Amino acid sequence: MVEGRRFEFDDVTYVVEPFELGPLVLPTGEIVGCDPLVSHTTPFVDTVEPGTYPLRAWVAVLHKDQVEWQRRIAALQLVIVDEPVASWTMAAHADQDVASLDEDSYFGYGVDAGTGTLADRVTIETLQSWDFDRIDETFIPAQIPLDPIEAVISAVVDENTGANVYVVGSGWGDGSYATYVGWTADGCIATFVTDFQVLPDA
Rank of each mutant, 00 (worst) to 15 (best):
Q128F: 13
V122F: 03
E125H: 03
Q70R: 14
L55C: 04
A119G: 00
D112Y: 10
T123R: 00
Y14E: 07
Y14N: 09
T47N: 05
F107M: 12
Q66L: 13
V79E: 09
F44P: 00
L199M: 09
E30Q: 15
Y53P: 00
D195W: 02
D158E: 10
D82H: 01
A202H: 11
W183M: 03
L199Q: 05
F139I: 06
L118Q: 02
C188F: 09
I140N: 04
P27I: 07
H63C: 04
A92P: 03
S39P: 10
L146Q: 12
T89F: 02
P23S: 07
I135S: 03
D158M: 11
S129P: 06
I31L: 14
V59W: 08
S100D: 14
D195T: 10
P200W: 04
R56D: 05
E83H: 07
G187E: 05
S105Q: 14
F192R: 02
R5P: 04
G33D: 09
D104C: 13
T42G: 06
R71H: 09
P50Y: 00
T13A: 11
E17F: 07
D104F: 09
A190T: 07
I144V: 15
D102C: 12
T191L: 01
P200N: 05
N164R: 05
Q77L: 11
A60M: 01
F192Q: 00
F19M: 02
I153S: 11
S170N: 02
V111H: 00
R121E: 15
T138G: 09
D195K: 02
V61N: 14
S100R: 05
S39M: 14
T13Y: 08
I73C: 12
P145C: 06
R5V: 02
G114F: 04
D112I: 13
D104L: 10
D11C: 10
L26F: 14
R121I: 15
E137P: 01
F44A: 00
Q128M: 13
V59D: 14
D10V: 11
V165C: 00
A91Y: 05
A99N: 13
E83N: 10
S154N: 08
V61L: 09
I149S: 11
V98K: 03
V111R: 01
G187I: 08
D133E: 12
D174R: 09
A99K: 08
D35Q: 08
M90Q: 15
V81R: 00
V61T: 12
F107S: 10
P200R: 05
A86L: 06
G173W: 01
Y109D: 01
G108N: 08
E17T: 06
N160P: 12
F44V: 07
T13P: 14
T161F: 03
V38M: 11
Y166W: 13
Y106C: 15
G22D: 07
T28G: 05
A202P: 15
R5M: 15
K64H: 14
D95C: 05
V67W: 07
D65L: 07
D174K: 09
Y180S: 10
E83W: 03
T194P: 05
F9Y: 14
D35S: 13
Y166K: 03
W183P: 04
A91F: 08
L62R: 11
S154I: 04
M1K: 02
T115L: 10
S87A: 14
V32H: 01
S87I: 09
G162P: 02
S39D: 13
A94P: 03
A113T: 13
L24C: 02
G169M: 03
E125Q: 13
L78A: 03
V122N: 01
V12C: 12
V16L: 15
A113E: 05
V61Q: 12
